[in-house]
Simulated assay, not measured.
Amino acid sequence: MSKKKKSIEDKLGSLKLGLTAMRNANNHFIETNDLAYLLTIQSQLRGLVGMGGAHMQPFLLNLAEEFDIPLEIYSHPKKTNKKGMVFSAIVGKTWSPVNRPGFVKYSLKEWLEVPTFFTDTTKDIKNRNQLIKDTSNYEGGTHYLDETPHIVDTLQRITMSDDTNNLNRTLLDIAEAVFFSGQEFLLKYEYTKIEKSMFYSNETRQFKLKELEISIQDNKLGFAKSTNNELNFEFAGFN
């Protein structure tokens, strides 16, 4: 007997639950500095956007593709020249929901695959997706294995002035971008649903669409406020 297929309502409910779990873990970690909360972030990142494994189904990315809803952010251009690189220090947030000087536009999927982090032991440049898989598979998000991947080792060894290592900074940075994108997907899905619905009068439809347009813009501006031109990294909870 085939397994029961999830309805769109089931999928949206699962997405909301996953985003809430990641938000709560982020905010509690910031309040307590308890590393246990990072395990939740690791596992949710793997489930929502982790790509490439035989059993990995990036839930948020798949939903966006299924309903043709673009998820776009801005970030630094990709790194292609390894000459002179020593390590990758995350001194500022690496993304923004609005354009910034020196940034380029990416889809969320592209951003996760952009070469970003220099591994000092292998002299390779790794991407965020690889980091998500490695932290989840080796560091407790999904499994606990005996070895530490090179990129995880590199980022763990680099500690900034606030005693937070680069691995934790990077996971929080990715989590915030994924949370923003998940919220944007939910708002855009609702917008498309109302736009196509035959159950509303034209006046009611336009009113609801206008409300959603404001919510979509508020979501962008809310996360844009935490990313200034100097890109000073600042731990913050998000709603």
Rank of each mutant, 00 (worst) to 15 (best):
M56G: 10
T119E: 15
L71Q: 14
R128S: 03
T94Q: 03
I69E: 09
F103M: 03
L108S: 04
L186D: 14
F67Y: 07
P77E: 00
Q44H: 09
M198R: 12
E72I: 14
R100E: 00
N166A: 10
K4G: 09
L60W: 11
T170N: 04
E203S: 14
V152C: 15
A224R: 01
P101Q: 13
N219R: 08
K16V: 05
N127T: 01
M1C: 05
F29Y: 14
Y74I: 06
E65V: 07
L221A: 00
T94C: 02
K93M: 06
K6E: 07
K210A: 04
L38T: 05
F233R: 05
A177G: 01
I73E: 01
P149F: 14
E195L: 10
S197I: 09
A36E: 02
R128M: 06
E230Y: 07
G140V: 00
F87I: 15
N127K: 04
S2I: 01
K109V: 08
F180T: 11
L39Y: 00
F223V: 11
G222P: 01
K220N: 01
K196P: 03
L60F: 09
A236V: 05
I214P: 02
E147I: 05
I194R: 06
L172K: 12
L131Q: 10
F180P: 10
T204W: 08
G47R: 07
N137G: 03
K208G: 04
A21L: 14
I132S: 08
D124K: 11
E184L: 15
D120I: 14
L35Q: 04
D10N: 12
L145N: 04
S96P: 01
W111C: 00
Y74F: 12
D153G: 15
I194M: 07
K193W: 09
L38P: 06
L167D: 13
T148C: 13
W111F: 00
I174L: 07
K109W: 05
K208C: 10
V86W: 11
F59E: 07
T164K: 09
K105P: 11
L39V: 01
K5Q: 10
T122V: 15
A177S: 04
L19M: 13
T192R: 01
Q217P: 02
E110Q: 06
V49Y: 06
E195V: 12
E31W: 09
T204Q: 10
Y200P: 03
Y191S: 04
T204I: 11
S107T: 12
L61I: 09
G50A: 04
N228T: 03
A54H: 13
L35A: 04
L212M: 10
M1N: 08
Y189T: 11
Y200R: 03
T170S: 06
K105H: 02
L209E: 13
I214S: 06
K109R: 12
S226K: 13
L221E: 04
P115N: 04
G50P: 04
I73P: 01
K208E: 12
W95A: 08
T227L: 07
D163W: 02
Q130L: 00
M160L: 06
E147Y: 06
S226I: 13
L145G: 02
L187N: 14
D173Q: 05
S181P: 03
P97L: 07
